[in-house]
Amino acid sequence: MALKKIKVMLIDDSAVVRQVLQALLDKEPDIEVSGVASDPLFAMEKMQRDWPDVIVLDIEMPRMDGITFLKKIMHERPTPVVICSSLTEKGAETTMQALAAGAVEIITKPKVGLKGFLQQASAELLAAVRSAAQARVRKLFNATAPVPVKLSAEAILPAGSSAMAQTTERIIAIGTSTGGTQALEYVLTALPRVSPGIVIVQHMPEKFTASFAERLNMLAQIEVREARNNDRVMPGLALIAPGGKHMLLKRSGAFYQVEVVDGPQVNRHRPSVDVLFRSVARFAGKNAVGIIMTGMGDDGARGLKELHQTGARTYAQDEASCVVFGMPKEAIKLGAVDHTIPLSDIAQVIINVK
């Protein structure tokens, strides 16, 4: 039986980008480029004849910009979209708009040295396309490339026992990846101003987490911001791990705070959900609630298991409401999850924490 290939449409106004991306993708036995186009209007004509499984989309293009096209696609025929664009720190707001509109992955390309970068970033691009192909983007509107080493949380925080006494301080720890930007928006905007302190790892490129947090802060009643080293975890505050850094929970007297550290990728991610969950298991134990949400891969599964073993309550987002069921599925397989619930119930779980 022939292998069913992932059909990809490339949309970019740069001929060099189209050429390099097509060459990279066409070398893969499980991927084929079904079409290329210099702008969304040309792309739409081709896509009507042969609809792709994944769209790789630039943002700055003639006739119709990528954000407008993304919204149009998600409204008319939701399809997984990987944004591949020259975005600077100043342009991170545009990236947040793309994620909010339904893009499932982001690849940042530089404005110079483009050809060399795209070749060096081929593993990231291929992983993004394969991840996107598994995404079920309709869910958002209703409610792997080989890597040499895959490190565990041991690289950042050695395993240790949790011997925390019961306290009145409650911690909510959330881990998510593909599809998580919209899922987190759904959850955090449903919370009242008085809610338990929340620590979050969302797999996201460096420089984008600050803008993501700022956007959520404008939408939510609670305060949401990118975590800084030694920030105290407090009721009514959600701290999001900075892209490119690991975030750990620590105890400071009667209170909790976060530590933001450098270190190698864990489970191919930095920040890593496993690192956060392990630290929460050690320093909060049964005073915590762990929630693993939509995402590709298995980051967070073992950390949630450690949390579960301390007596903390643990939850997984259910398959029906996930964009990608990978992370919750792996946690469930490990026996790390007390309850599997839909996205629509997660905010209420947080509200009900006593």
Rank of each mutant, 00 (worst) to 15 (best):
R225V: 11
P271E: 02
I292T: 05
M247G: 02
N217K: 09
T294G: 12
L216Y: 06
A241T: 00
A227T: 04
I240M: 03
V275W: 05
F255S: 15
V258D: 02
E214L: 13
V275I: 11
L248D: 01
F212R: 07
D262I: 03
N217V: 10
K250T: 14
G295I: 01
P235Y: 09
M234G: 01
F212D: 06
R251K: 15
M234S: 15
V233R: 00
I291K: 09
R215T: 05
P242A: 09
V275P: 06
M247N: 03
A284G: 11
V273S: 07
F255I: 07
K286Y: 00
A241W: 02
V275N: 01
V261F: 04
N267S: 13
K245E: 07
R225W: 09
A241V: 01
D274T: 09
V261E: 08
S279R: 04
A301D: 01
E214S: 15
L249E: 08
A227K: 05
V258C: 05
Y256Q: 01
N287G: 05
M247F: 03
H269F: 10
V260E: 11
A288G: 05
Y256M: 01
A281Q: 09
N217W: 12
A284H: 10
V224E: 05
Q265S: 14
D298E: 14
D298F: 06
A213R: 03
G300I: 06
L249Y: 07
G236F: 11
M247P: 02
A254P: 00
P235W: 11
R251Y: 11
D274N: 15
N287K: 09
K245G: 00
S279T: 12
F255H: 14
V280L: 07
V233H: 00
R270Q: 08
L276P: 05
Q265Y: 06
H269A: 12
M247E: 02
M218E: 15
R228N: 15
E259A: 15
